[in-house]
Simulated scan of single mutants.
Amino acid sequence: MTKTPGSIMRAEINEAPARFAAMVQRDLTSALNPLSLDKVRAIYSVARGSSDAAANILSYEIMARLRLPMTSLPPSVFSLGNGVAMEGTLGLILSQSGASSDLVQACRGIAENGGQTLLITNSAASPASALAQATIDIGAGPELAIPATKSVVATIAAGMAFLARLDASYRPACEMAAQAMLAMTTRTIPNKAALEAALSEAGSVFVIGRGCGYGAAQEMALKLKETAAIHAEAYSASEVLHGPLQLASNPLTVLILDTGENRVQDSLNTAETRLRGVGARVFRISPADFGVTDVSPAGAAAILLAALYPVVHDVTLQLGLNPDTPENLAKITDTV
């Protein structure tokens, strides 16, 4: 227990913008030299929890820029099964600790099945890094609160820097994202108090996004669950209009994460209209609310998370819980 509940998580949230800005502008040429990236025809991410949400964010950005398919593989394909053919692919393993048994086995299994392996981690001296062909150390520094915050945005930054190494024209987007993120240190969500009040009273929460915003929605739903013990589910703005919409028959709070992508606006608008129409309490958050425009979708997703982590922190305290140490969780979860 900490002397002041939430003080550790609060300090790490405050570090997040600088950690993101440093990582997203890093030149990864030497780190990626062991890989033959010109031979990659598809990318498969392997991750769990917040790292998997970061991978989802990155997948939309990477596919849009490189036009290479990128999707996730469950670690159990390698840890419990015999793996899959990986020739011509890059296995992108994302793990803050690099220590979970299933991810370590996945790293080994990808290589054994013909794939290249790249690890994005906050622990360069880890079992997974000993196996990976190449490692990106996100440089987030020690993260002592159980809920991950600064390491998540730094992981997104690492993926963006990786993309800039493959597509030099993406480098300006990384620089703009760094500047926008650093500006966030003096800005807050305009309706923060109302959002916190709604979340504190919520029985169930939908967090909705589209494109890179969907991965951000996954991370925010996870944070509400693991930190504040609030039942929250993430949905794509398209998927929520099918079966999940019926849950709005009961009181429902909805948080829409809008990355500002033009192509997703119609989808988000439709979801917002439908959910408001059935009585849900809807909050829509965009980087434009803080004066941030012209940032890449992945950068916008990271900015939304950095802006919303303080909300989760404060709501958790309002509910009488300690965000530093959720009682049923551990910092490293070892799964097989």
Rank of each mutant, 00 (worst) to 15 (best):
M1W: 14
T2C: 12
P5Q: 05
G6F: 10
S7K: 04
I13H: 07
N14K: 07
E15A: 12
A21H: 08
M23G: 13
T29R: 11
S30E: 15
D38L: 00
K39A: 14
K39L: 11
K39R: 15
V40Q: 06
S45E: 08
V46L: 14
A54W: 08
N56K: 10
S59W: 09
M63H: 08
P75N: 07
S76V: 07
G81A: 14
N82S: 15
E87W: 15
T89F: 10
I93R: 00
G98C: 04
S100G: 02
S101L: 04
C107Q: 07
E112L: 09
G115K: 00
Q116S: 08
T121V: 01
A125M: 02
A125H: 10
S126M: 06
L131K: 05
T135I: 10
I138L: 03
I138D: 06
A145R: 04
A148W: 10
V153W: 09
A157T: 01
A158C: 07
A158P: 05
S169N: 06
A173L: 03
A173V: 00
E175M: 00
M176T: 09
A178F: 12
A178E: 07
Q179E: 12
R187Q: 14
K192Y: 05
L195G: 12
A202Y: 13
V207I: 12
G211E: 02
G215R: 01
K223I: 05
L224T: 03
T227Q: 13
L241N: 03
P244F: 14
L245E: 11
L245I: 15
L245F: 14
Q246V: 13
T259M: 03
T259S: 04
R263M: 14
R263S: 15
Q265K: 13
Q265F: 09
S267E: 12
S267C: 11
T273C: 01
D289E: 13
P297T: 01
A298P: 09
A301V: 01
L305I: 05
L305E: 07
V312L: 04
H313K: 03
L319R: 15
D324Y: 10
T325M: 10
N328R: 08
T333E: 11
T333K: 08
V336R: 07
